[in-house]
């Protein structure tokens, strides 16, 4: 089976996020109010061959921790999208 899996990488809480902060500062100029805690990050989508959804997620999580994120400063979230 093939599964489509999304990995989202963001800076860990406590690590300064100058990109997110800059985006947040731009919001009032665009007329948006009431938006806070903007965090910038990266997103990846992967097509993974696996026996079942949980194995696909496990593979993605391993990849996310070993390559897609740097655990010193980033968190990775893995989400199963669908079977493809």
């Amino acid at each position: 089976m093939n599964y489509s899996v999304a990995v989202s990488v963001t800076l860990r809480a406590g690590i300064a996020d100058p990109e997110g902060a800059t985006i947040e500062r731009a919001l009032p100029a665009l007329g948006f109010s009431g938006i806070s805690d903007v965090r910038a990050g990266k997103s990846f989508t992967l097509r993974i061959e696996a026996d079942d959804p949980s194995e696909a997620v496990m593979i993605a999580r391993s990849l996310a921790e070993r390559l897609l994120s740097n655990p010193v400063m980033e968190d990775a979230a893995v989400r199963l999208i669908e079977e493809v």
């Binding site: 800076l11 690590i15 100058p18 740097n70 010193v72």
Partner: peptide, 17 residues
Amino acid sequence: LTEAGLLPGALQKNRGL
């Protein structure tokens, strides 16, 4: 060297971008 784990820590984007 930090990514390879030969030195501790990491380098992130400059403050002020």
